[in-house]
Structures are given as structure tokens and as C-alpha cells.
Simulated scan of single mutants.
Amino acid sequence: MGRLTEAVKHLLIINILFFVATQLYGDQMYLWFSLWYPENPNFQWWQILSHMFMHGSFMHILFNMYALYAFGTPLERMWGRNKFLFFYFSAGIGAALLHTGVNYYLFDKGLQALVDSGVNGDQVLEILAGGQYSPSWEDLVGADTVSSFLSAYNVPAVGASGAIYGILVAFAFTYSEAELMLIFLPIPIKAKYFVPLLILGDLFFGFTGTATGVAHFAHIGGALFGFLMMWYWKKNQFNNNRWN
């Protein structure tokens, strides 16, 4: 991989600065810069971008920044700084859009279930805006529905993972025969198999809900937008051009 490329270096620095600031200022940073559900009072338009620089733990930022360095560096060398940054932020925004779309579905499903059970929808939104909820909702529509409903509204998304998944897809397109290894499966796997395997895992956990605390659909969104961009660039012969 060699020397850091310009865009990757600056992305690493910004992410590290945000992480240090989060350790110093904690909750306030999460309120301002995480990606909240649009109907949540904490939502701000800039969070669509700023959430990409927020991370929840040291291991979270460590894995993301290592992946950015390992897979982003060769792509930036090939594409040039501007094309790499366009791809990176496009994948990250795509991840935010799919994540928010899934949350909208879960939130609307839960709200509609409560309304159908006789609860006033405006009162539900007022209670949520005050940072509370009614335990009686679980008796009306079930604990799982309420859990998904509250999670969609109250749990913000953080991390560069969506953009990183786009980078992984681009790497698999470009260096399909490169051999990679999963930490829990130390066997060399070609990139063209490794990356789809990761995405299939996110699809499984996302649809089954068996692994919480991870924005699986943000990963899928980043991978999907990365795939669409790579497919379009390859089809239109843009993939061989550098943007300086």
C-alpha cells in the first residue's frame, strides 16, 4: 500500500479529530453530529455528512480507518483525489438514505399500529419528542414492534462504515483476485468472494434483527451505491479516467 494518499490522509485526520472531540465532549457531539431520524428534534441537515466522521468506540474507528487506508489508498492512486472523494461521500450518503428509509418504514409501521389500536398519533409524537414512551404501547402492539419503532426514532447512526462498504465494493471490482482474510476466518479469500460474503452477512442480520447495535442497512446502502457507481463507470468507460 505504501505512502498515504492525500484524500485518505485527510479523511483519517478528520475522523481522528472528531473521535478525540467526542471523548472530550461526549453527548453533545452525538447530539450535533450523529444521524438522527428526521422527525427527531435532534435531527439537522448536516448530519447526513457529519455522521460519517463519528464513531462509537475505539474499535469502531480502528476497523473503519484501517479499511479506509488498506482499500482506499490503491483506489485513490488509480482514480485521483477528486474522483475518490466523490465516490466515498456518495457511498456514505447512499448509506444514510437507505438507513433512514428503513427507519422510516419501521417507525411508520409502529406508529400506524398504535393508531389502529386507538392511540392518538399526535400524542405519540409529542411523548417521543419529550424523550419518553408509554409501556402500555407494548401491550397494544407487541414488544418487538415497539422496540423497532423506538430504535428507529431514538438511536442515531454513526460511523464511516457505509462509505467504507462502498470502497470495499470498488476494491472488489478493481482488484477481484486480491486475497483477503476475515479476522474470525483466517483463510485467504479472493476479494470478489470476500466482499459479497460480508454483504450477505449484513443482509441476514439486517432482515432477521439477530444482531443489534449495528446499522446493517447503512452497510448495505453504501455497498449498493458503490456497486451502482462502479457499474455505471465501467459501462460508460469512466472507470479508467482520473479526476485530478
Score class of each variant (00 low, 15 high):
D139N: 12
A178V: 10
V102N: 06
F19G: 09
M54Q: 13
Y133P: 00
L182H: 15
W36Q: 02
L4E: 09
Y69G: 00
S134N: 14
V115Y: 05
L185D: 08
A21L: 13
E177G: 04
A91S: 14
V141S: 02
V146G: 02
N154A: 12
L182S: 12
F63A: 13
N40C: 09
A223I: 05
Y165D: 02
L98D: 02
L12R: 04
Y193H: 13
Y193P: 00
N120P: 01
W233I: 10
L106A: 13
H99V: 06
W231R: 13
G101A: 06
A67R: 00
M52L: 13
S134W: 03
G101Y: 05
P186E: 05
T212W: 15
T212M: 15
L49D: 07
N82R: 13
F63T: 13
H55L: 05
F238C: 05
L224V: 13
A7S: 12
M181I: 09
V8M: 10
I187Y: 10
I127E: 08
M230N: 01
L75G: 04
L197C: 08
Y66M: 12
H60G: 12
D27M: 11
I13V: 14
I14R: 00
Q28M: 12
E179R: 12
V102W: 05
S147W: 07
A160W: 06
I164A: 03
L197R: 04
L203V: 09
G201P: 00
I48G: 01
L168N: 04
S117T: 04
N64R: 03
Y133M: 01
I220N: 07
Y175D: 03
L31R: 14
I14C: 00
E177I: 01
L62A: 15
F71M: 03
L197E: 02
V195C: 01
S134V: 08
F204D: 02
A7H: 02
Q28P: 01
K109Q: 14
I93W: 08
A152F: 04
A191V: 06
T212A: 15
I199H: 05
L111D: 03
L182N: 12
M52I: 11
H216I: 04
E39L: 15
Y37I: 09
L180M: 10
F18C: 13
L75P: 06
A211M: 15
V141E: 03
S117K: 14
A191P: 02
A152N: 07
S148E: 09
H216E: 03
K109C: 07
P188M: 10
D116S: 12
F63L: 15
N240T: 11
I48A: 09
P135A: 09
H60W: 06
A113T: 03
L228E: 02
V195K: 02
N120F: 07
N42H: 11
L150G: 04
N103S: 08
I220K: 04
L198F: 13
L106W: 11
F207V: 13
N240C: 01
I187C: 04
A67D: 00
F43P: 09
F204Y: 15
L200A: 15
A67T: 06
G56W: 08
S151Y: 08
S151H: 12
T73N: 14
N64P: 04
A129R: 15
L24R: 07
N64L: 08
S134K: 10
F227Y: 14
M54S: 10
A163I: 07
A172Q: 02
R3Y: 09
F43N: 12
G92R: 03
